[in-house]
Design a protein around this nucleic acid. Structure first.
Lengths: 151, 151
DNA sequence: CGCAAATTCGTTCTTTCGGGTGACGCGCAA
DNA sequence: TTGCGCGTCACCCGAAAGAACGAATTTGCG
C-alpha cells in the first residue's frame, strides 16, 4: 500500500513535469492555463481509472507458469507430478503434511493425526513453504495444486 | 452509472472553475502554475481512482445468475453457484474476500488491495468462516471450492 | 422517508503461524 | 567408518489470524 502510494506520487510528479515541459514548449498561448489544467485532469483521471482497475484485481503469484496438459476429464484423475516433486526436493513426509494442510487442518490436528509433535509438523511445513516459495499455508496450497503435487 | 458520469463531468467542471478562481484571486505568484497543476492532478487522480474502483466492482453484483460467459476453455469452466451463495447468506463482498484468501493473500494484503483496513477484512473473513462452518482459512477455501463458490 | 442489509472500522484478547536455531537418531551410500 | 538425507523434537519470538464484542455509515428497497 505504501509502495503503491509512493509509486503513484512519483508517477504524478513525472507526469506533471512532462506536462509542464510540453506546456512551456508548445502551448505558450493566451489560454494555455485551461489547456494545461484540462490535460492534467484528463491524464490523471485516466491514470486513476487505470490504477483503480488494476489494483482491485487479484494478480497471479507464486511459480505459476507450468503450462502442463490439462486432464480434461470429468472426474478428477489427479496424477501426482513426481518429477516436479523431485525438482523441488520435496520429501514424501513433507508432501503428506502439505496435503493435510490443504485439507484445512491446523498444525496441532496434523500432529495428532500423524502421531508426532506440533514442532515436527511446523518443521516440515516450513521446509515445504520454503521449497514452494510460499509464505502462508493458503499460498502453499494454491501453488501445490497448480503444480499437481496434491489433488 | 449515467448519473455517475454526469456527476463526474459536472464536478470536474466546477473544480476546474473553482481552481481557476482561486488561481486568479490568491495564487497570482511566480510558481502558481505548479500549484494549480498539482491541485488539479490531485483531485482528479483521487476522483479517477474512486471512479475506477466503483466501475470495476459491479461486474458481479446482483443476485444469483451471474454465471457469466465461460472464459477460455481449460477443462474447468467454473460456474458460480449463486443459489448456494444465497443459501449460505454470503454477500458479494464476503465472497470477494474468500477468493483473495484462496489466492493465498494475507489479511493485510487483501486490505491493501481492496482499500480497506485489516479490521474490515477480518470481519468479512470471520463471517464467511462462520457461514461456511470453517475455523481456519485453509478449511474455508477447501469448503468454498467444493461448494463452487470460488474457482 | 424509514428499515434492513451490507459494508466499514475499532478494540481487546487468545490462538495459531512462521522463522530461526540447534540437536538427535536412523538408514544408506561412498 | 564417515557423510548425508530424512524424520523427529525443542525452544524462543514476532507476526498473523481469529473470536468477540460494539458501532458508524452506506445502500437497496418498499
Amino acid at each position: 500500500m505504501k509502495r503503491t502510494v509512493l509509486l503513484y506520487g512519483i508517477t504524478g510528479g513525472l507526469l506533471i513535469a512532462g506536462l509542464k515541459f510540453i506546456e512551456y514548449r508548445f502551448l505558450v498561448v493566451e489560454h494555455s492555463l485551461e489547456i494545461y489544467g484540462g490535460l492534467v485532469a484528463l491524464v490523471f483521471s485516466a491514470v486513476g481509472l487505470w490504477l483503480g482497475r488494476r489494483l482491485t484485481r487479484p494478480a497471479e503469484t507464486g511459480l505459476a507458469a507450468v503450462a502442463g496438459a490439462a486432464p480434461a476429464s470429468s472426474g478428477e484423475p489427479f496424477v501426482l507430478d513426481g518429477a516436479r516433486l523431485q525438482q523441488l526436493g520435496i520429501t514424501p513426509r513433507e508432501r503428506e503434511i502439505l496435503e493435510l494442510i490443504a485439507a484445512g487442518l491446523s498444525n496441532q490436528e496434523i500432529a495428532d493425526r500423524l502421531f508426532v509433535t506440533q514442532n515436527t509438523v511446523k518443521t516440515h511445513a516450513s521446509r515445504v513453504f520454503e521449497k514452494l516459495n510460499a509464505r502462508r499455508r493458503t499460498q502453499a496450497v494454491r501453488i501445490a495444486k497448480a503444480e499437481r503435487l496434491i489433488p
